[in-house]
Amino acid sequence: MRCTSRLIPFGFVILLLLLLLGHTLGSSCQTPEKTEGRCVHFSSCRLVLRHYAMYKEHMPPVIMRFLQRARCKPKNEGYHLCCELKDVIPANANSKLK
């Protein structure tokens, strides 16, 4: 009797882990200022939270244009933008938009 095992190829497992990790952390991107960033939900970016805390609904047009240029996903996936690495809030941190 022949025993056949159905092992998942190692390369596939690595690819799957990289995809899951990339989804959790956000994908790499370039900010409008040409610096390395991470594509994250706007609520995970300190820069956005600082601007919102300062201006609330009266954000200056220049900042609004910057945030629009920083978008890194289609609108139907929520508001994700390319956030500079130093401003990315870790997923395990308590971040609330105030």
Rank of each mutant, 00 (worst) to 15 (best):
L67M: 06
Y79V: 15
E57R: 15
I14R: 01
H58C: 10
M54C: 08
T24Q: 12
S44K: 14
F10S: 13
K75E: 12
M64P: 00
C29V: 01
S5I: 14
E77T: 06
I8F: 08
R38Y: 05
H58Q: 14
V48L: 05
Y79W: 11
C82V: 00
E84G: 11
K86F: 05
T31W: 01
S27C: 06
R65M: 06
Q68D: 15
N94E: 11
F66Q: 01
E36D: 14
L47I: 08
S27G: 10
L7E: 12
S43H: 10
L20S: 08
V48K: 02
G11W: 07
R50V: 13
T4M: 12
K75R: 13
K75V: 08
H41W: 11
I89S: 04
L97K: 04
Q30V: 15
N76R: 14
F12D: 13
L16P: 01
L17A: 09
S27Y: 15
F66H: 05
F66P: 00
P9C: 09
H80T: 07
V62Y: 14
I63H: 03
P9N: 09
L19V: 11
N76C: 05
R6P: 10
F42A: 06
Q68E: 14
F66A: 01
V48F: 14
L15F: 10
G26D: 02
Q30T: 15
R38K: 12
F12E: 15
R50I: 12
F10M: 08
P61H: 07
H58P: 02
A91V: 04
C39S: 07
G78C: 03
R69A: 08
H23Y: 12
L81N: 00
R71F: 06
V13G: 04
K56W: 07
M54F: 11
S95T: 11
R2K: 14
K86P: 07
L18I: 00
P32Q: 02
E36N: 11
Y55V: 05
S28P: 10
C3D: 10
R69W: 05
F10K: 14
G78S: 05
V40G: 02
V13W: 04
I63F: 04
R2P: 13
C3Y: 10
E57C: 06
K73H: 09
L17G: 07
V88P: 02
L47Y: 15
